[in-house]
């Protein structure tokens, strides 16, 4: 197998991340599911165009934190209560004035299990675009171009260009997950949240996805949850470590892995939590 040369942290350039504006600014966020507190005064800053890995043992609140950023936790209704502040590109997204539809246009999400809609490949790619397009005008040429660009960007075009009308649910898991990324691109999101996007994939597909994700950052700010240490280490610039609902440590990936400041972090990356 060809050795992938993706995202070696040794070639990471500090200048890339430094001094750029914040894409996500989470301050003092606490979150309750009913009476159960899942997040405790969490802070996290994610720089624009960067790729940040969120790690920590199962149940520590990674998904919860991620879903606070596009307010997907609110699907559960009043049962979920969030306090603190979250800004995306300097806009307060927890404010009551925020239109969830607009927020989620700018903050896309990729889920643990690939979840293409039961539509054709093409309609999947165009789904968000059609929802958000201001005028209702339908332009076949424009749409074709959007589909091709999005699919090319996720390296899927050559594989599916002859079957754009087929059901997306018939694709392989790797292709499905790529499609789930592709469908976010036409509406030009600022941030893409990814919740263990490769955990349903085999090692080869995982490598392909990691390569793609690495290739996307810069244009998009990526916050990715992973339980895979190697993945966090290979494919992120910064890493944030959570434990029991608290943000324990956040820093440059290289540093977190080589010289963690907190004992909890060291224990975790050395596999003492399982």
């Amino acid at each position: 197998m060809k050795q992938k040369t993706i995202a070696p942290w040794t070639t990471w350039k500090a200048a890339l991340v430094e001094d750029t504006a914040l894409a996500i600014d989470i301050q003092n966020v606490s979150l309750w599911y009913g009476d159960f507190q899942a997040l405790f005064e969490v802070d996290l800053q994610v720089k624009r165009g960067s790729i940040t890995a969120l790690i920590g043992p199962s149940g520590c609140g990674k998904s919860t934190l991620l879903r606070a950023v596009n307010r997907m936790n609110e699907r559960l209704g009043d049962y979920v209560r969030t306090t603190g502040e979250i800004h995306v590109l300097d806009q307060d997204i927890l404010s009551d004035d925020v239109e969830l539809s607009q927020l989620r246009r700018h903050v896309g999400m990729v889920f643990q299990r690939p979840n293409p809609l039961p539509l054709s490949i093409q309609d999947n790619v165009l789904f968000a675009h059609r929802i958000h397009r201001a005028d209702e005008k339908f332009n076949k040429l424009e749409e074709d171009e959007i589909v091709e660009n999005a699919l090319r960007r996720v390296l899927l075009w050559d594989e599916v260009k002859d079957r754009l009308g087929r059901e997306a649910t018939g694709l392989s898991l790797e292709e499905q997950q790529k499609l789930c990324i592709a469908r976010l691109l036409p509406v030009k999101p600022t941030v893409i949240l990814m919740d263990e996007p490769t955990s349903a994939l085999d090692p080869k597909a995982t490598a392909a996805l990691e390569e793609l994700i690495w290739e996307l950052h810069g244009d998009y700010t990526i916050l990715i949850v992973t339980h895979n240490m190697a993945q966090a280490r290979r494919a992120s610039e910064e890493t944030a470590f959570m434990l029991l609902g608290r943000m324990v440590e956040h820093g440059v990936t290289e540093q977190i892995f080589l010289a963690p400041q907190e004992e909890g972090t060291a224990d975790y990356i050395e596999g003492r939590y399982g």
Partner: peptide
């Protein structure tokens, strides 16, 4: 429900 979730996450009302 994953279909609804996927669509809502893309900003569908």
């Amino acid at each position: 429900d994953t279909y609804r979730e996927a669509a809502e996450a893309m900003g569908a009302t």
